[in-house]
Design a protein around this nucleic acid. Sequence first.
DNA 1: AAGCCTCTTGCGATCAGTTGCGACTGGAGA
DNA 2: TCTCCAGTCGCAACTGATCGCAAGAGGCTT
Lengths: 148, 148
Amino acid sequence: MPFPQTEIPGRLQKQLAGRGIRMTAQRRAILSVIEMATKHLDASQILRKARRVDATVDRSTVYRTLDLLKRQGLIDELDLMHIKGEGHYYERRLDRDHIHMACLRCGKITEFASKTFDSLKKQLERDCHFHIVVSRLEVGGYCSGCRR
Amino acid sequence: MPFPQTEIPGRLQKQLAGRGIRMTAQRRAILSVIEMATKHLDASQILRKARRVDATVDRSTVYRTLDLLKRQGLIDELDLMHIKGEGHYYERRLDRDHIHMACLRCGKITEFASKTFDSLKKQLERDCHFHIVVSRLEVGGYCSGCRR
DNA sequence: AAGCCTCTTGCGATCAGTTGCGACTGGAGA
DNA sequence: TCTCCAGTCGCAACTGATCGCAAGAGGCTT
């Protein structure tokens, strides 16, 4: 997503295979679509693009694969405040959690990484004795271009 | 949700009416369910409870009312990391944003308010010139009881 | 109280996401 | 290479959420 030029094709595949997870043609198609994405994709977009790679990909397979990737901690699921409908978006998980900011007027998505966010998570773990596996901070409001 | 004993029945209704929003019997039923809730409710639970108040409430009316309340900034929508399925949960919006922490093992939901979270939001507004209207921080992991 | 008009509703259809079943197959082992 | 079996797939049905339409009604004005 943020760094398309540095993505290494086949990395998701290697990561799954390295965990003993079976690889199929359909999964390869789906993985390649996710890796090559230059913007946030929802499930139907992933399905459409994956079908261009392999026409046998079924909708339920896309959802199952996304679910697998989520459970393996390899992708993040976002709803981007549902500004474009009820669906979810998916993106590669990077090393550092970042915040998604969705403009309620123009729909622009801004991403922001912050040390304060990292500190906040550490605080949660410490104060609540909670071991964080996945976190998601999404914000809706007005971007600089749309502010009144 | 966190403070059921301090909730004032009819407050949501007054808030909507004060904004010139039309009040119906169905909306009253739905609002009372949300106000009286002592735990996070999903749409079907709200529907079921609202129907006990007024049997004419339709499912689509529940969703519409929830959407209206969201847009008016009176409730928050949470997915609680979808640990209990794909649906969403709804709760009254309080003055101070808080974080939801969902245990991936036992399903327990912990809520936490933090000054660091407030600071983080201020940082976003400042650094990105973004006016925040709504924010949501959800965390999935293992609670103190389930940690290994 | 009656009239009016804009908003809201129920209902059925549709879309986002999930599930169960039987058929298929990836990949490990011989 | 062949066998095998546990995992995966497509498909149809189901659930969470939304949409469009015609009928109903809230609430304001007279």
